[in-house]
Design a protein around this nucleic acid. Sequence first.
RNA 1: GGGCGUUUAGCUCAGCUGGGAGAGCGUCUGCCUUACAAGCAGGAUGUCAUAGGUUCGAUCCCUAUAACGCCCACCA
Length: 902
Amino acid sequence: MAENLSKTYDPKEFETRIYEEWEKGGAFAPSEDHSRKPFTIVMPPPNITGKLHMGHALDQTLQDFLIRFRRMQGYNALWIPGTDHASIATEVKVADKIRAEEKKTKEEIGREEFLKRVWEWKEEYGGTIKQQVRKLGSSCDWSRERFTMDEGCSRAVVKTFVNLYKKGLIYRGNRLINWCPKCGTSLSDAEVEHQDKNAKYYYVRYRGADGGEGLVVATSRPETMFGDCAVAVSPQDERYKDLIGKKVIVPIVEREVPVIADPYPDPEKGTGAVKITPAHDPNDFEVGERHDLPKWSCLNDDATMNKLAGKYEGMDRYACRKQLVKDLEEAGWLIKVEDKVIPIGECYRCGTVVEPMLSDQWFVKMKTLAEPAIEAAKKGDLIHVPERFEKIYLHWLEDIRDWCISRQLWWGHRIPAYYCDDCGEIIVETQAPDKCPKCGSTHIHQDEDVLDTWFSSALWPFSTLGWPDETEDLKYFYPTDVLVTGYDIIFFWVVRMVFSGLEAMGEVPFRYVYVHGLVRDAQGRKMSKSLGNGIDPLQIISDYGADALRFMLINGITPGNDMRFVVEKLDSSRNFANKLWNASRFVIMNLTGEDGEFLPMAGTPQGIAALPLKDEDRWILSTVNSSAAEITANMEKFELSLAAQKVYDLIWNNYCDWYIEFVKSRLYGDDEEDKKVARKVLVKVLKDLLKLLHPVMPFITEEIWSCLPREAGEITEENPQGWLIRQSWPVSDESLAFPQEEELISLAMEAVRTVRNIRAEAGAVPSRKVRAVVAASGKTAEYLKRAERHIMTQANVSEIRYIEDRSEVTEEVLSGVITGAEILIAMDDLMDYRAEEERLSKEKKKLEGEVERVGKKLDNENFVKKAPEKVIQAEREKLEKYQDMLSKVTERLNIVEKKLQK
RNA sequence: GGGCGUUUAGCUCAGCUGGGAGAGCGUCUGCCUUACAAGCAGGAUGUCAUAGGUUCGAUCCCUAUAACGCCCACCA
């Protein structure tokens, strides 16, 4: 790594280099030593659909923070990286690309060729993503990298499917599913987004078959009338009592359907009579099941009307609706139309309105699988951070319905089900069968469909560790420790991993779920491609460095809450990095002895404590020592933001602003022995601070660390290069607790601040030394005397006189009160009256000019008449302000002049 | 229809199971003091959304209310 630090902080100079060295040196891989406790995270695999966005950057940073912290704490840390094939999303993207570039559909290209193209896409985008993850500094073990469609994960998928099928938990059925007409595939319930939309209720009369009035039904989808097979009413509904059992005629369709009594219709809603279309509505489907009604589907897969629709055949569902309503109206069957807000289901990928359709699909039976997952959360085997997400998790599992897992797509895991062409037998096996076990036929074909992409993601925590094989990794690293993810995929992913893990492994896949929010733009809007408000993490890294980005993403966030991406926060993070950089340069500059060699360090806490330490040494050692304990506790409780904030404070406010300043006079002094002590403390503390900061800012800390002298214990067999990434985490040590010195230096700091304050408020000449009088007694006096050196140097005081009684001072003074004491400074000392007179005169002149200028403006009739009220008001306020300032300056100038005359 | 979150300094947000109201940015004043002007020193700014309640004491707990946002929900 670097030999010494360049003059200015330039992350470009070292971030890439350091990452390469880490990776080459095996810094991310866990040890083979399985006697140590493991700490495992599996990375939520980014989709290979495109590049990483800011949300990924947050996700990665949080995980890397945790894994680095635990690694340093001594856990055998493993973070498994990988990518997701993202079945439907990728298929759509690649199909779009082919359509745009070659003007061909995927059908025209053919399944085999299409899949070849997708694999090429995967190589390209998967590669980009991996590079981005590296740029962010993620310390994941690339030797264990996985892909949801690699050989192992595919075996896991097949194995799981077969297992669940044999247990009767996966079945094939002709049921109502969500159908996306554009993507041409079924969707799970989770993949449908409900949106409230303005729509209409159409009230349509179904006349009696006996020539009677019949009844009126309300529907928002009249085009489904072609699938109507009954009209249901509540048995309690007096209005329709006489119609039950009779027939009514569906207009236009001119089909006789029975009026049936069923508990489903709510007499309060609509007309109380519901047209029943089992093939296009989930509720109707159930009614149909209860009454053994036929299930007539009137839609094609592309949402056009089928032959059941008669003359409307071939029309799009909405065109048909429009025409049908018109026809109904003309025929007199349309009673009224009502505006209504109705929740509409849309495809989460393409936004097309989803159609409930009757279809042969594969389903996972959820009830039995959900139960242990519910239990796990209730027992505390699974803990959500923050807690409130447990409620969401439970609620979803508690009224879960069966999961439709087959997709009419090509890119994905093909369903391991085989059909005998001769006898129709269904064979579900891990290996394709040679012949039908029932009839012996060799005419067998595999199911054309693939699985829901989330079926394979659900296995991620154990498929990545080698399952279904009983690998060493699986035994040692499962269950994993924490899953970090955004709240937007709890249902898609977290829930399914939990029940899958419990089913396959008998244990929850992770102990903690750390849920983070979304990264929004500066206005609080979701970052999206359509808005074009996305921010590329790589661009930010190139402008500010990965460390600054990471710190910015961690700082000021709360688990589960969204954050805004504000560029100013990056400046602040970068400035912090620069601050640390320069402080380190200062330390390193002062490290070497006359011969240019590093001075021997003191090593252990006991070694440091045994040195002839000064008060300020003890203060900083003690402060860092106790803060380390707090910071550790914060991190263990996932309070990462608080932890980062505390390290920031420690570095900037304690170490840089105070300790380094305290110690300068010693470093520049003649006492060689004491100089060494100061150096040792400087380095010891800097090292601890670098360790504490490393999880959030890994690059800069490693770079600085590499420039500091190595000591015993820092180079080990596991860490031959002595890298920071593998150093041990600071543990608070009793030998470094110095409460008395903490109190003493705090008091000194108060005194310094007070004197500075007085000086600044009095407008004293900065370079001018002042004499101070300290009125204090007892311990306070004693401490302040002990800290006299600091007060003098830090506050530019030339002399301190101690008194017990404040009334001893009779001259004109300014004073400030600190804990247990008062500090007084003579007015005469504060001011160079000549200089002050000059300054005030200048100031006065300037102000007079301003007053005159604004005054003139306001005296101008045209201005007052024509300018907007706001501007006039602002000018008036300005005038007032300047006049006020002028009178103060004048007053002060008078005093100064009087002093000069004396 | 059900549930949840947010509301704290001009802006972005912290506030770790009730006891001093904070940070960064911005702003104002003074400083190029040999680590750092991406800096140093100092200052100003808040009825912690509103109304009640519990408590010796509430930004924090309870109950309402409002605004904004989010999630879930089988579209008669």
